[in-house]
Design a protein around this nucleic acid. Structure first.
Lengths: 209, 209
DNA sequence: GTCTATAAGTTGATAGAC
DNA sequence: GTCTATCAACTTATAGAC
């Protein structure tokens, strides 16, 4: 007889819960999200979620850390790709090289963004700067991204500025649902088109769904 | 004998509550904020807040609308100033004129941002795009800003893009508390400096406090 | 115009069984 | 490794007095 819930290792279960938590926290934010929603999204009981992570706060922190880790990993993978491609034309000007890396990282970001929960969890984390325990985690993550852009991607200050600013605008358009609204609203469509080309606009529309 | 709470007109009281709500919603977000916190910030009882606004959701919507209205009003005032100044040199190239307006609006935004609650309330609103009743209000507000930049400020598409992107980055740096952290953290200071000049960085530091 | 009292619902967390 | 039962705290909203 199949048990109601399959017994799997604690590590697998934790990962499963963190994935579910990313969706739930992303959709509802930290305080509107409930451990019960996370539990049901993971297909287990609410007390078991608490048992495994101690507190809701701890669950969010681990979810946030995991998401930040994935973001950095995706960027690093994109950089590695960019380096490979760069070998072919190793002599191109450093400036063009920087642009190429920027494009690669941008693409990597868009791919991540297609998972709505991932990015919204990050955003919600950044919004909680005044929380004494979550705030430092979020800031630390942001600074890690900054250092990566500066030290590993070799971005110029102005490049960093633009990259981060565009990322935040994408986040906002996504979170507010303007990406989706663009289908039916003329101004929204024009806004999407003028802030980012039609390419990005399409990705955001898909991601909004 | 002075009554516990001074009796004032309902309109005055509503405005007072909305101001308090802006601070509380900004600091805690929609769902972590309680009607009790708002009441205490306004110096009245919790049931009275509910009595005047019907529901917490309605209170937030009115708070959000008021904040969006103030944002637009501040931008329009800045544009009026810019036009006055422009008269003196009415013959300058349209391009330079656009830049001047951009600078004015940027300054106006920074002034607003100095009230932490105002901007964070907006941000929280934008994050609630998937809420069936709050989402539309937030999107509508965003689009109003877009139309104002396009039709009243006469911004070029790329100008709109940059203006919005920079605004969102400022919001994030503020909300996450990196602006404040810059005082003690070398990387945070460099981040602030490289994304925005030292002028803006100083304002953001003040606003973070 | 404003309060006190309180009902009713939700949610995080604990205890203990299997 | 996972569940059921359940408590305690909190929060929105209502009723009714002043």
């Amino acid at each position: 007889m199949t048990p109601r819930t399959e017994r799997i290792s604690a590590d697998e279960r934790r990962e499963q819960i963190l994935a579910a938590a990313t969706t739930v926290f992303g959709e509802l934010g930290y305080s509107a999200a409930t451990t019960d929603r996370v539990a049901r999204a993971a297909g287990i009981s609410q007390p078991y979620v608490v048992r495994l992570f101690g507190t809701k706060e701890q669950l969010f922190i681990e979810t946030l850390r995991r998401t930040l880790g994935r973001l950095l990993a995706a960027f690093r993978a994109a950089l590695a790709d960019a380096d490979d491609a760069g070998d072919v034309a190793a002599d191109v000007a450093a400036d063009a090289d920087g642009k190429a890396r920027e494009a690669r990282l941008g693409e990597a970001y868009l791919e991540l963004v297609e998972d709505r929960g991932t990015l919204l969890t990050l955003l919600h984390g950044f919004m909680m700067g005044s929380d004494p325990v979550i705030g430092p985690v979020a800031r630390d993550g942001f600074l890690q991204v900054f250092r990566m852009l500066r030290d590993e991607a070799g971005f110029e200050p102005e490049q960093i500025h633009r990259f981060l600013a565009d990322g935040m605008l994408i986040n906002t358009l996504l979170a507010s649902g303007i990406g989706l609204a663009a289908k039916g609203d003329r101004d929204a469509a024009e806004l999407m088109d003028c802030t980012f080309g039609s390419h990005v606009a399409e990705v955001l529309e898909r991601a909004s769904a």
